[in-house]
């Protein structure tokens, strides 16, 4: 972006689109297990993610563009998760929240748990922890916004 002396801002259309998209992420109401309790905290008044442009949680996958997979993904849930992901309009992003979602976590050797949600849907940001604190998830969302704007996180 370049700021001129005459009060004008020039930018490319791509940059403007990325800026707009990154600041209006609409997460999907999608809680699978205990991580969902921490996910609920980030939209409450204490850690309000609306400050960073993530707005309120939408109840329909057709109105949302961010899926926070919060909690253990069982093998029975995986086809449903894929179907909900397919129903979301482009552009869409996925945050994997918690170790269960990243690689199975404490249920790694069980018979019923998917070993990583990245086997089911493509994941943009991984937030480790058991469960991650709401601050960690907020950081994950800010990291995703930087990723959408093609900024490096350093």
């Amino acid at each position: 972006m370049k700021t001129g002396d005459v009060g004008l801002i020039t930018t490319t259309l791509d940059k403007a689109m990325e800026w707009g998209r990154s600041n209006s992420l609409w997460p999907l109401t999608f809680g699978l297990a205990c991580c969902a309790i921490e996910m609920m905290a980030i939209q409450a008044s204490n850690l309000d993610i609306s400050r960073f442009g993530s707005e309120i949680f939408r109840n329909s996958p057709r109105q949302s563009d961010l899926m926070i997979v919060s909690g253990t993904v069982t093998k029975k849930m995986a086809p449903r998760l894929r179907r909900i992901y397919d129903e979301m309009p482009y552009p869409k992003y996925v945050i994997a929240m918690g170790v269960c979602v990243i690689q199975g976590g404490p249920y790694n050797q069980g018979y019923s748990v998917v070993l990583g949600v990245d086997r089911v849907v493509p994941v943009d940001v991984y937030v480790p922890g058991c469960p991650p604190t709401p601050e960690a998830l907020t950081h994950g969302i800010i990291t995703l916004q930087k990723k959408i704007r093609n900024e490096t996180d350093r």
């Binding site: 093998k75 029975k76 086809p79 449903r80 179907r83 050797q109 018979y111």
Partner: peptide, 10 residues
């Protein structure tokens, strides 16, 4: 037998 991993699809 946990070694025989099974998968679920719809």
């Amino acid at each position: 037998d946990l070694k025989k991993v099974q998968y679920i699809n719809m």
